[in-house]
Nucleic acid binder design. Structure first.
Lengths: 342, 342
DNA sequence: TATACTTTTGCAAACGCTTGCAAAAAAATG
DNA sequence: CATTTTTTTGCAAGCGTTTGCAAAAGTATA
């Protein structure tokens, strides 16, 4: 803690011990709900705590080998809404379980990720949640080696030992494609996400598999590279619109990217969905707020956060309990940004 | 830290001391950049640290009276975009200064705020940033008493001792009104924010003062109560549209609320801005993404975060330095959601 | 009632660091 | 070169906990 705090002295377990007339280790046992405490003394301690307003000192606690009741969250950035939704779920669950949250942003810089991870591992978090890491391998190895508890959100690594919470990305993309193809679309443009993420590759896979299954050709010119951010949607759409035969629909790898697509389409004076259908992925809150509202694949983002947090806490409470990774299913949400191809 | 970490032992200052052939207090001095260290030894220690990959243990550090290099952020929730922008600024500055961020969400529950504050004060944060608290007085007193360093963001308390960073809310609302009135609007609807916040009351004040200055009447039926959230925009707009003589423009207390207004207006089949102009406040990223793009007052949200963080860190580094609260100016951004009244 | 368990309690060490103070070394002074 | 002054160094105590271990108290058994 900082140096201020002139005045009021902190209440420690020693004060409580004195007040309750027991030894300080008894107080510690009560605080941590350990066994071997006479109910009567437990009561006395509890009362003393209430009377003096005791609040445990987390650093001392974790220094001494206990838990800090803090979990770390490693995240790329906070501004896309996508992250916000997941964090909302994490926060909900964390609050319910009396944990605090330490937030680390990487800004997509590899070195920062590494630095963060070492300091987290040495630091005050009991465990770590990681959202959509781009190249996690480097630091995930550190975590594994040290046997440090972590859960990956929205990333399907290859190591099945890791706990992960993902949504059915490929299946979701497939659903969207199914809908579009059955609505008569034949030339479907696709803008990829970051292909270093599994979310990125799986959505692309869903796109391709659907085309294959319906006997449609995979036209590489219809697939534009992107990175899940709005500008990549704008640029990708530009390129697709410049094709000799532009597609009748653009399927973006996420909603934010789809907003970029909308912008580009409107900049050309085209109408949505009459001239161009647009489909996104994620169903972030803004998807309903844009005009026209965006057809998209709903990912249960908040649930992902909740589930991941619950997994992590379970692991913390019993490191040997066997837990399985979770795949949450997605849902097609049809709004006004897409229509039939006539 | 959690109990795992079988295997690799942590590197402590003692290891470094051994490696560098000095005492461990020397290592501590080097790490903390204290004076009275021979350059040559400093070098030796630095090299040993690099070689062994030393990372300080924050809990031990702060337990021993040093700083934790963590700052706390107390925030209502994360989902409105508004908060996200501010946090982005905070994060930028924090990263630059090598601080970590502990995030506390209150969900607007008073008791939680109080609990958090006591645990923060006893806890691991060196200082605290507080965004837009509804009724901060209760816990702010605790902070003041303990002389705990904090900065209020977007809240203008009455106690001038407190460090605050706000934007010129009243002036901003006035700017918007000026623009609207000069564009020919005479009946201007207003939906308030949470009036327990200074942002809420000041924007309302700007609305009223502008009307007064231009000699226009203040019609209470044109002012609807709200709370900065989207539904309140929707409902407020409904009521304004139900008036015998509806306004020609609705001025919402923030962008999110304005999105609700847009929804309501569109639901009635009215066109924006031909039938109804809409103006928001904040200029969050989505303001450009909605259709039509929203005319709004730009608050330098990211800057607010940055500036507040900088203030806090300065205070931490020198508790006696005299710092002044900051008022950042706002800017009218005219987009397509508003037009002339003909 | 003596003996052997079992539960409850308290002591002390440890966690990794900061820092005041005194000792040692180096530099400056006469 | 001896002495004083200044800089550099190391020791030890302390921060507030947790926890293994041994002592104390309580309970059951013979």
């Amino acid at each position: 803690m900082g140096q201020p705090n002139d005045g009021l002295k902190d209440i420690t377990i020693i004060d409580i011990a004195q007040e309750a007339g027991v030894s300080y280790s008894m107080v510690s046992r009560v605080v941590n709900n350990k066994e071997h405490v006479k109910p009567e003394k437990r009561e006395r301690v509890l009362q003393a705590m209430a009377r003096l307003g005791y609040v445990a000192n987390q650093q001392a606690r974790s220094l001494a080998g206990g838990r800090s009741n803090v979990i770390g969250l490693l995240v790329r950035d906070l501004t896309t809404g996508y992250t916000g939704e997941i964090i909302r779920g994490i926060d909900l669950e964390l609050t319910a379980q009396q944990y605090d949250l330490m937030l680390y942003t990487t800004h997509n810089r590899k070195t920062r990720e590494m630095v963060h991870v070492t300091s987290i591992v040495r630091g005050l978090a009991d465990g770590l949640l990681i959202i959509l890491p781009t190249q996690p391998e480097s630091y995930i190895n550190t975590l594994r080696q040290r046997n440090y508890p972590f859960v990956l959100i929205d990333y399907q690594g290859q190591d099945t030992e890791d706990l992960t919470v993902v949504s059915a990305n490929q299946q979701g993309a497939y659903q969207a494609m199914q809908y579009l193809i059955e609505a008569g679309h034949r030339r479907i443009g696709f803008i990829t996400g970051t292909l270093e993420t599994s979310a990125g590759t799986e959505r692309l896979a869903g796109y391709k598999v659907a085309l294959a299954n319906y006997g449609l050709p995979i036209d590489p010119t219809l697939i534009q590279g992107g990175d899940f951010l709005q500008p990549s949607g704008y640029q990708g759409a530009q390129k697709l619109l410049d094709l000799e035969v532009p597609p009748s629909v653009i399927f973006a790898s996420n909603d934010v990217q789809a907003f970029g697509v909308m912008e580009a389409v409107r900049d050309r004076g085209l109408r949505i969905p009459q001239d161009m259908s647009i489909v996104g992925f994620d169903d972030i809150p803004q998807a309903t707020q844009v005009h026209p509202p965006l057809t998209t694949i709903q990912q249960p983002l908040e649930d992902m956060g909740r589930v991941a947090t619950r997994l992590l806490i379970q692991r913390l409470q019993d490191p040997h309990v066997s837990l399985a990774s979770v795949v949450l299913s997605t849902k097609l949400v049809i709004r006004q940004s897409s229509g039939l191809f006539i």
